[in-house]
Write a protein that binds this DNA or RNA. Structure first.
Lengths: 325, 325
DNA sequence: TTGAAAGCGCTAACAG
DNA sequence: CTGTTAGCGCTTTCAA
């Protein structure tokens, strides 16, 4: 491979001049520039990225860390990548498969200057272990960190009002008993959903249902499992609220197979407004998940001084389809 | 950030020795090793990747190039990434959005030593433009390149027999007229499917249908469009064969909405056996798409001398569900 | 078993 | 406007 020296020789100039041409920095006469550009073209030269990065002390590469690659995660990753690409940043995706060590190793890449910043979608380590890394580069997350005094930005969105929105709509259409299919026991989203549900119950003077065993449910298999749990219930609920479209799709799928009619026999609602909700025609909540991914990137680039992007507002919107009245 | 020199000083040894410890190369006495390891731990040292890469002339990073991020593509990317990760390789995903220049720029990263090898899922440039890059690193693709004399490996799988399998099964169950919803007009998969269909027609002495306007159909929107095209037909077919589960999901979705019963009114078959086919309960063909992604990685690592992996065999299997008799 | 020294390819002062 | 020079942080001969 040709190096900058080869180009310099070929063009009869110094390496510094070639560098100036490549980077469009400093003064270069039009003639010299042309000669250099021709040499570059002739020798088919591409600068060695490692040398550039070593010299500059930065990459134009953002890391994306997740613990799973399910649809709702992908729905954030894609717009993030696209936005980064447009800003001329590269992205590297790391799946930790929920292994805390892998997560730490990946954060080390920030130290190793391999990554300029990180979009930490799902974390597995304590914040106290993660935060020290911010001295090596910005970190943005999907988690809620409002209460914590951390140097980490977040694109978290409080599910409370979105969830309440669903409940109220179901109520208006006659539903009186509900099952909340919830995710991570410790997650903030679960807490906020529970809060919304409890508040709702109080306002409408109804008895809340037991959250167990509907906690910690995830993935398509989780959705199938939820259906079995509901089947085992003595009193069937009027409506099932899934915490994601992925779960909802599995539930809807099972009901279709069993000939359970929606919304006549039971209502089902998802969350996220992914393609699947459209395809399977079930009610869900949209909150610009796409823009959320982009916002993560905007935040990161702003912190890196690579732009001054305004964040897009994220609003809840109920998307009514055929699984609710 | 601490550098190798800092560690050397701290441990009272030379940088060379630290390097030996880091890389587990050459001779280091147990004592020295311990002292160095302690220094590394104390100073929280992580080697600068760019310096390493510059020195070594290689990264442990594989590029994945695609022109779109739809489900069938993701279904290959995920296992590829996982396999690479396990072999201690990093992956970087590039979406060209069908822009030939972006594709070339990404291939340039091979030259720039930024990528050790490339999984070129979908290409947009001519092979003649792509092949020269193989001198800078191995390229593996999903495209068929059997006929061409290229230095590019492929995990292509001929759809002929898989497609024939579907047709025969439909025939046995009474279907006599078909619509083939086909992809890229120039793609080999389309050609092989057409060949399978024409052979099938000849064997069963039936008249093939016009391929137009069912060519070049892709994405969910494409599936919706296909349904409209079929509606406009004078004679309704007994069965619709989609070239991917994505297309099939859109078709099935539309039919559900319109109250068209499957398989009573019409049969629908997909291809790929993605999650969605299971969720929406439609018949499809499995051919270890997951292993195909891994094979791509195996091939790449073999070429890089980073292993001697055996390829997994890819076989067709008809997965019958409720959209066919 | 260890250290000295050279150099991977590039950029950025600085001097002219 | 252009060239000289130093050095980013690491690995790898070579010599001791």
């Amino acid at each position: 491979m040709a190096t900058i020296q080869d180009i310099a020789k070929h063009a009869g100039v110094s390496a510094a001049t070639v560098s100036r041409v490549i980077n469009n920095s400093g003064y270069v006469s039009t003639e010299t520039r042309q000669v250099v550009e021709q040499a570059i073209a002739e020798l088919n030269y591409v600068p060695n990225t490692h040398a550039q990065n070593l010299r500059r002390g930065s990459t134009r590469n953002l890391g994306i860390i997740t613990s799973t690659l399910e649809d709702p995660v992908l729905a954030r990753i894609e717009p993030f990548m696209q936005f980064a690409n447009e800003a001329n940043y590269t992205t590297t995706l790391f799946n930790t498969y929920n292994d805390p060590n892998r997560e730490l190793e990946t954060l080390d890449r920030l130290k190793a200057k391999e990554l300029d910043g990180i979009f930490l979608i799902y974390r597995t380590n304590d914040w106290s272990k993660i935060e020290p890394y911010t001295q090596f580069g910005p970190i943005v997350t999907l988690h809620n960190i409002e209460d914590l005094d951390l140097n980490i930005q977040s694109v978290y969105i409080d599910h409370y009002s979105g969830y309440k929105m669903i409940l109220e709509d179901l109520w208006e259409n006659g539903a009186r008993s509900f099952i909340n299919v919830l995710g991570s026991r410790t997650g903030i989203n679960t807490k906020r959903r529970i809060k919304a549900y409890l508040d709702f119950c109080e306002e409408h003077q109804i008895e809340p249902h037991d959250f167990e065993p509907f906690l910690g449910i995830g993935g398509i298999e989780g959705g199938y499992h939820a259906v079995e749990l509901i089947d085992a219930l003595e009193e069937k609920p009027d409506a099932v609220l899934a915490h994601s479209d992925e779960i909802a799709s599995a539930i809807v799928s099972q009901y279709h197979k069993r000939g359970v009619r929606m919304p006549e026999d039971i209502s089902v609602v998802g969350f996220d407004n992914l393609d699947i909700s459209h395809l399977m025609d079930f009610t869900t909540v949209d909150y610009s998940i796409h823009e959320q991914g982009k916002n993560a990137c905007r935040l990161l680039l702003n912190e890196l001084g690579a732009g001054a992007y305004e964040l897009a507002p994220l609003n809840f919107q109920l998307i009514k389809r055929n699984t609710t009245k």
